[in-house]
């Protein structure tokens, strides 16, 4: 049977549903995702449904189940890219998706997760290195008060969490 690919990106898992979902495929995705969350220790799951022309009660339930499962496994799920017509139809259908967070675009979804789970590569110092480089570059000795403006107290670039605190 076909599988929907799950991509690992730092400590996030990314799923883009590009096919007309058969029920078994949706169920397989639930199983695969929970396995991958445990396997990778992912803290966030992004599910892109921008290619889905409809979300019926079965697919809606799948998204809800994934959100609940991933929360139990210490990961947050964000569904991104829902089409407006799909949203209108879901409301009329009467489908509630408890626990499912949504964002308009993949970028917004990343920001939403980034604000909560800190997108970082696991056991990889590259982010710290990057921060160190930035700090050096931005702080050549002169006017340190100005150089650190716009930064979090840690010296890390301020996270873009203002509009996405949930």
């Amino acid at each position: 049977m076909d599988r929907i690919p799950i991509l690992k990106m730092g400590n996030l898992l990314l799923v883009s549903i590009q096919v007309d979902l058969q029920d078994q495929l949706a169920l397989a995705l639930q199983d695969d995702l929970s396995e991958r969350i445990v396997q990778t220790g992912a803290r966030g799951v992004l599910i892109d449904i921008s290619a889905l022309e409809i979300v019926d009660s079965f697919i809606g339930r799948m998204l809800s189940t994934i959100a609940s499962l991933s929360r139990l496994l210490d990961a947050e799920t964000v569904v991104v890219g829902m089409r407006p017509a799909v949203a209108i139809t879901l409301v009329e259908l009467g489908l509630h998706m408890p626990g499912v967070r949504t964002a308009l675009t993949l970028e917004h979804g990343l920001a939403l997760l980034g604000a909560e789970v800190r997108v970082r590569l696991p056991e990889d110092e590259s982010f710290d290195d990057l921060d160190a480089d930035l700090t050096e570059a931005a702080d050549p000795g002169a006017s340190p008060g100005q150089a650190v403006s716009g930064r979090a107290p840690t010296g890390r670039p301020a996270p873009a969490e203002g509009a996405w605190t949930g």
Binding site: E53, D56, A85, T89
Partner: peptide, 12 residues
């Protein structure tokens, strides 16, 4: 929107 509604109903 109506296409989406009728396709969703048919799927159910």
């Amino acid at each position: 929107v109506d296409q989406t509604k009728v396709v969703t109903a048919a799927s159910e």
